[in-house]
């Protein structure tokens, strides 16, 4: 009997499809970890609107906590970060991998490992949570489309777990 251990897993090299779901690695993107006591100062520094309610997303910037945002932006987007202001704008683009889960079976598939009430999560909201024991940022981009941001070293496992959880 062969046994697969986590160290042997590799990142999905091409999209995986099963009845009702499609799982794929998202294109490379820019990621910024944003922190600030005063959102107005941070907003002025980066020249963008920041969502104020935890879980809301505005133009790719998700509010994860009272003083914390994660920007998921198209590749090549650069945020200003050298202003001497008391804010933190850190490029963490390579820290995570995006995995997209799409299709009418997407909600059920995400719910195989995520303890949130995924069905009731409003479209357009994003939050840090877990999938099984792995921390993720879950962003519901449409009724049947999710972007899952996961730290790079966990991505092969998460991809395999999503494939394993797909309907056959």
């Amino acid at each position: 009997m062969s046994e697969t251990v986590a160290a042997d897993l590799v990142l999905l090299d091409q999209p995986f499809t099963a009845p009702g779901v499609r799982i794929a690695i998202a294109p490379a993107m820019m990621r910024y970890a944003l922190r600030a006591r005063d959102p107005a100062v941070l907003s002025a520094v980066i020249g963008r609107v920041l969502p104020s309610r935890i879980g809301d997303v505005v133009d790719g910037i998700a509010c994860l906590g009272p003083d914390e945002w994660l920007a998921l932006l198209p590749a090549g987007t650069v945020l200003e970060n050298e202003t001497g202001q008391l804010v933190s704008v850190v490029d963490v683009s390579c820290r995570a991998v995006g995995i997209t889960v799409e299709g009418p079976g997407a909600v059920a598939l995400v719910a195989t490992g995520c303890p949130l009430d995924v069905e009731r999560m409003a479209v357009g909201r994003a939050t840090r949570t877990v999938f099984e024991t792995v921390e993720i940022v879950l962003w519901r981009k449409a009724v049947d489309a999710f972007h899952i941001d996961v730290w790079r070293s966990f991505a092969p496992w998460l991809g395999a777990a999503l494939v394993a959880g797909s309907p056959s």
């Binding site: 935890i54 994860l64 906590g65 009272p66 914390e68 939050t127 840090r128 949570t129 877990v130 921390e135």
Partner: peptide, 13 residues
């Protein structure tokens, strides 16, 4: 019991 909790895999607070 009054206790501290942390929403570690959420808002972090």
């Amino acid at each position: 019991h009054h206790e501290r909790w942390r929403h570690i895999h959420g808002c972090g607070r």
